[in-house]
Write a protein that binds this DNA or RNA. Structure first.
Lengths: 190, 190
DNA sequence: GCACTATACGGAGGGTACCTCCGCTTTGTC
DNA sequence: GACAAAGCGGAGGTACCCTCCGTATAGTGC
């Protein structure tokens, strides 16, 4: 990963029981947010994690700290995924990763949205996550541009933002997303 | 407007004082949501409207009813706007309206998102709003397709959803949105 | 104008979630 | 095994959600 390592932003606690509870809480939160949206109550998260409410608040003093932890997990995943496309042809590599990126953005978008309500857009989390994602995707984009299959005037920030936008579309029809993504990717071709 | 008239979905109350309070509440809510996001408290809205909390709840028994009322206002506006482009060339008309649509979607997206948490995607409000927007935009799209400037395999639902997605992008840089919109519109051209 | 009724108003109050605080428990160390 | 240091849990104060009902006002018929 060429940019800041996002994992350094989420220092796990030291003592064994504390680390155990921390992990239980993050897992419980991920499930709860997935099932009930980001408005899931923190008491519900604590209950799921089978941990006292006080413990939750010690590890995550504010609501956004918990959102952040879950968000970071996702960012780590999508960054790692970029490496899997290294041995594919330029266009296939880029578009393959972007298709995967839609999935990531779709599940984590609500989280990011919620985070924005609490912390500033250019807070450390976001710049670091942005940096990590751009660092992961840039080589794929550059390779496609050098191969002449993608327009030269697009940068990785524009591209990932466009895809995030498409991922934000709420529709029951998964095919429609694919169709729209196809249109957008066509706009990207040289 | 070719589809269901959205205004029929929001029956104004009858008595003069009630109508007055209703309007004060909707205005206060629009302001509050704009300033503080959709999580603005209802007590705050009532305070702004200078109305008792009981009055708010009589007009809008559930939180979503208030969100809905503000959302409908926006939908009416963007539908009306489509008519203003009737006398422009096909591509300019479509892309002009879509540029305006980005602005609408950007301010009302959070509202729609929130509504989805309460009511079903295919509830009356959404189908009616979707119908109204599609009805307003379809002539513009069709004209552009018949003039051969837009690909024939795109329908109005795909197009508006793509634009909504782009509007959902959170960035401080307004130029970036324009750039991305440009890429997406290029993907739309014949 | 006046009286009468349907309609609407306001805010007290019960319930829930948020978050803090602090006495008790567990972990790691010597 | 004893002793800090670190961590745990939940009672309780605060803020918001929403309901309920006694009071006030608009519209109507005379």
């Amino acid at each position: 990963m060429s940019a800041t390592d996002v994992t350094t932003l989420a220092p796990r606690p030291k003592r064994a029981d504390a680390r155990r509870n921390y992990d239980k809480l993050v897992n419980a939160a991920r499930e709860a947010f997935a099932e009930q949206g980001t408005s899931a109550t923190l008491e519900e998260v604590a209950r799921r994690a089978d941990v006292g409410i006080g413990t939750l608040y010690r590890h995550f003093p504010a609501r956004q700290d918990l959102l952040e932890a879950v968000y970071l997990e996702g960012v780590e995943g999508i960054c790692r995924a970029a490496g899997d496309y290294a041995d594919q042809p330029p266009w296939e590599a880029l578009s393959g990763w972007l298709h995967e990126f839609v999935g990531f953005a779709a599940t984590k978008r609500a989280l990011a949205e919620d985070l924005l309500a609490y912390i500033d857009r250019d807070a450390e989390v976001f710049t670091a996550c942005g940096g990590a994602i751009y660092g992961a995707g840039e080589p794929l984009l550059k390779r496609a541009q050098e191969a002449g299959v993608v327009r030269a005037d697009a940068d990785i920030a524009d591209v990932t933002k466009m895809i995030s936008g498409i991922a934000a579309i709420r529709t029951a029809d998964a095919e429609q997303i694919d169709r729209i993504l196809g249109v957008a990717l066509d706009g990207l071709r040289a």
